[in-house]
Design a protein around this nucleic acid. Structure first.
Lengths: 257, 257
DNA sequence: CGAGCCTTTGACTAATGTCAAAGTATGTGG
DNA sequence: CCACATACTTTGACATTAGTCAAAGGCTCG
């Protein structure tokens, strides 16, 4: 894990108002009251180009502000004392990262680009000023932080109660939902992250990820080749997500001969 | 609000300024800037006596505000579609619950008293007004929400990477730390929650909890009888928390370029 | 074209869950 | 105050999931 790249700050494009950004409506302008959205539109941010393994921030870094994933995919993770990496989440375009840094003034987790992408920084001072001037912005920020909390609660629930199959099915369904929400195909998309990282995210070994994908393929649920995902039976996949202890005499065995 | 003819009897639970409360310094007054603390002290709250299994809020309830555990212990949990309960955390006196309700305006989790205790409500409208008037209060609220997020991240990490022994050891150490921080014995305290709930919190079966406790007892680390915990070897317990893949006499890959 | 990284597969193991039942506290009504 | 009912905890035997180890197979990129 040494070949990691520097923390970003390299290539920045011109600074401009967020409200003028072509993806504003899917980003800061996605939620909140009209006043809040208008206020957030006045933030000036510059998108930074990032490449695979570029860090957005690292655990221990001083908190400079929140970051928005504008393009690409960002992996948030923590390292345990014994060096293992736990992936807390994968963040897609329009999603905001860095809330854990608000707790103590420095980050407790790290964020790294999964592939080529683009990141905007929302400077803390600017956000504070905005929140002070517009109560609605404060509400919106709290909403986002709370949403992040809920996201983590779901992950906890998933890891504590679901089987490997259910976890991976849930992971794929979540990705599918994201794409559908944003107007892309719910059944055909790319899987930008490594199998290893999916495993570290779901609390499973890489080999298990591989085997489960295989099982799904055999059962005709999906075709996953390299990074390309085709979901053939989205409902079937959804059905796998929840434990369903209902099988009183009828176990959910799907055998394609 | 509540007719005074309620169960409110033992303790003075009439509405009064939080700043005058005897536990303020361990509660709202625990963190944040001086201005923030002063502002929060002006909140008026009334403590409500709760008994075992009384709910503070339930999933689906409209979000009315945050709640402070003043005495006792509160269990936060979610129910999966298949009815299983996942315990997200146990909250001790001075801790604040309900941040997940900020995300959507209603709660996604439930909170229930583990035993007899006392709860204060911090009305949302009051908090919003305070945050609007005092930017520092806004910061403090974000801090708390972020801290809650970090707490959940730790739980994720624990469940994904630690063995049953490590998880329970961590759980006990956390409790011990809480008691130490608050001036109580770090090695002798009560375990207010059921074994079942500890299991549901750590993602383990009740039987496993029981067996691990037994193992700890055999190894002379603790004595746990009913709800009474005696920690005999706190350092030993701490040592168990982290995986330590020490097998081949320390071989952490520290490859430099 | 070769090196390194990533993924897949197979064989085996270990940790934890499940089921069943006994043991032990707790509370209630007689 | 007892006796019973209920709820919680512990223990044992066994099943099963997912992890580990080892190695081969495929991409990708310099």
């Amino acid at each position: 894990m040494s070949p990691s790249a520097e923390v970003i700050s390299l290539h920045t494009s011109r600074r401009r108002n967020c409200g003028d950004c072509e993806v504003f409506a899917r980003c800061l302008g996605r939620t909140g009251s009209a006043q809040s959205i208008e206020a957030l539109g006045t933030i000036e941010a510059s998108a930074t180009l990032v490449h695979r393994n570029d860090h957005v921030y690292r655990a221990g870094d001083a908190f400079r502000g929140l970051h928005v994933v504008k393009a690409g995919c960002v992996k948030a993770y923590v390292n345990s004392e014994s060096g293992e990496e736990q992936v807390l989440g994968f963040y897609m375009p329009g999603e905001i990262i860095g809330f854990d840094g608000l707790a103590q003034g420095w980050h407790l987790s790290s964020a790294v680009a999964v592939g080529t992408g683009s990141i905007c920084e929302l400077p803390q001072a600017r956000l504070q000023r905005l929140a002070a001037d517009h109560g609605e912005v404060h509400d919106t920020l709290m909403n986002w932080c709370s949403l992040e909390l809920v996201r983590m609660q779901h992950l906890v629930q998933s890891m504590a109660t679901r089987s490997a199959d259910a976890r991976l099915a849930g992971f794929l369904v979540d990705l599918s939902d994201y794409h559908a929400r944003h107007g892309y195909s719910a059944t055909q998309f790319t899987l930008p992250m490594l199998r290893t990282d999916i495993g570290r995210h779901l609390g499973l070994a890489v080999e298990t990820i591989s085997r489960v994908i295989n099982r799904f393929r055999r059962d005709g649920l999906v075709t996953i080749e390299r990074q390309q995902v085709h979901i053939h039976d989205l409902d079937g996949l959804r059905g796998l997500v929840h434990p369903h202890t209902d099988a009183l005499g009828e176990a959910p065995r799907r055998d394609s001969a």
